[in-house]
Simulated scan of single mutants.
Amino acid sequence: MTRKDSLPVTDAHAVKVTGVSRIFSIKKKPPVTALESVDLTVAPGEFVSLIGPSGCGKSTLLRLIADLDQPTAGTIEVFGKTARKARIDQDYGIAFQQAGLLPWRTVRANIELPLELHKVGTAERRSRSTELLELVGLGDFGDSYPDQLSGGMQQRVAIARALAESPNLLLMDEPFGALDEMTRERMQNELIRICAETRAAVVFVTHSIPEAVFLSDRVVVMSPRPGRIRSVLPIRLGGPDDRSEHIREDAAFFDGVSAVRESLHGTPDTGNARGVDTR
Rank of each mutant, 00 (worst) to 15 (best):
G266S: 11
M1N: 13
V42F: 01
P268T: 12
T2C: 07
F79H: 05
R248L: 12
E185K: 12
D180R: 05
G19F: 00
T60S: 03
P240F: 08
G271Y: 02
M182G: 00
D91I: 03
V202T: 08
I88S: 01
V220A: 10
K4N: 07
D11W: 10
R236V: 07
N189F: 15
T41G: 00
R186Y: 12
D140E: 14
P234W: 03
S54I: 00
T75F: 06
K81E: 04
L61C: 08
R218E: 01
H246R: 15
L113Q: 03
G177T: 11
P103N: 08
G100R: 07
V136P: 01
E131L: 13
T10I: 08
E185S: 14
S127P: 10
L101G: 12
S231W: 01
V257T: 04
I194D: 09
Q154A: 05
D5P: 07
F24K: 00
T18F: 02
L40T: 11
G45T: 11
L115V: 10
D242P: 10
A99S: 14
A160M: 05
T130M: 10
L61W: 02
L101W: 07
T10Y: 11
G100H: 09
P224I: 08
S223H: 03
I247D: 04
R218G: 02
Q155M: 11
T206N: 07
L149H: 04
P71R: 04
S258I: 13
N272R: 10
R125H: 07
A123G: 01
L115P: 04
Q98E: 15
L64F: 08
G74S: 09
R248I: 14
I88G: 01
S59Q: 02
R3T: 04
S127Q: 13
T270S: 10
R126M: 14
R125G: 02
A43R: 12
T106D: 07
A34I: 08
S150M: 12
A109R: 04
T278K: 09
I235Q: 05
K28N: 14
Q155K: 05
T270R: 09
L113R: 06
G93Y: 01
F79W: 06
H246Y: 15
A83I: 07
T82H: 00
L7V: 00
V213T: 10
I26T: 13
T41V: 08
V219N: 06
D173A: 02
V205H: 07
I159R: 00
Q70C: 12
T41K: 10
A83Y: 06
R161V: 08
L171Q: 03
G227V: 06
L61S: 05
G142A: 09
G152Q: 05
F253N: 03
V48H: 01
T122H: 12
S231A: 05
P71E: 06
A66N: 03
D89I: 00
G271C: 03
S6W: 15
R161G: 07
F204N: 04
L170D: 05
A164R: 15
A66T: 12
R184D: 09
S144Q: 13
R236L: 14
P226A: 04
R261K: 14
G45I: 03
L35F: 13
P224M: 12
F214D: 06
C195K: 15
G239F: 11
R126V: 14
S258W: 15
M172D: 08
T33Q: 05
V120R: 05
D250N: 06
S231V: 12
H246W: 15
C56I: 06
P103Y: 09
A259K: 09
T41I: 06
L233T: 00
K28L: 11
K28D: 15
